[in-house]
């Protein structure tokens, strides 16, 4: 064999047997072509290995218990809880700021409800909008 070619990558990855490893190591001491090739692919290997690990967006795993349509039902308790909490907050706010204007307060409440419901229902929103690179 004149040069080791793609065995050099396997050599780097510990994917050659002991005998081949010894042969390659010996060959490298006297072959600039293989040394240069090894340096190149070793660099490429390390830049990929050094890519930051991206954390799983929160909520991604529970959502998989049901199909995408049924997932909405599975999230309903959380949605109902969040929505009623916001409604209560909005109503309290409304009562404090503008007592007697129950109608407008109600509208504000349901508007916020819908927004909160959407965010709670789709945990992927933060993943899509948030930074996609790791730290």
């Amino acid at each position: 064999m004149s040069h080791w070619g793609d065995r050099l990558g396997a050599y780097l990855d510990g994917e050659v047997d002991e005998q081949t490893r010894t042969l390659i190591a010996e060959h490298l001491t006297g072959c600039g072509v293989c040394r240069s090739e090894l340096a190149d692919i070793s660099w490429a290997r390390s830049v990929v290995r050094d890519l930051p690990i991206i954390e799983l967006p929160p909520g991604i795993v529970p959502g998989v218990f049901a199909s995408r349509r049924r997932r909405r039902r599975a999230f309903r308790p959380a949605w109902a809880w969040a929505a009623s909490a916001v409604t209560a907050a909005a109503l309290t706010l409304g009562l404090v700021i503008a007592p007697g204007q129950a109608d407008s307060t109600f509208e504000l409440g349901s508007l916020v409800d819908r927004h909160v419901a959407r965010v709670v229902l789709d945990p992927g929103i933060s993943a899509i909008r948030g930074p996609v690179s790791g730290p």
Binding site: L51, I53, E55, L56, P57, I60, V64, S67, G124, V132
Partner: peptide, 28 residues
């Protein structure tokens, strides 16, 4: 493996949305 599957898909597509869907599909 959830995080690794997510990173696999992200590095293959460069897209967080696709990686998200893939993790869910794989786990199913």
């Amino acid at each position: 493996h959830g995080r690794t599957i997510y990173n696999f898909a992200y590095r293959l597509t460069g897209n967080a949305d696709e990686a998200h869907d893939l993790v869910q599909e794989v786990l199913l």
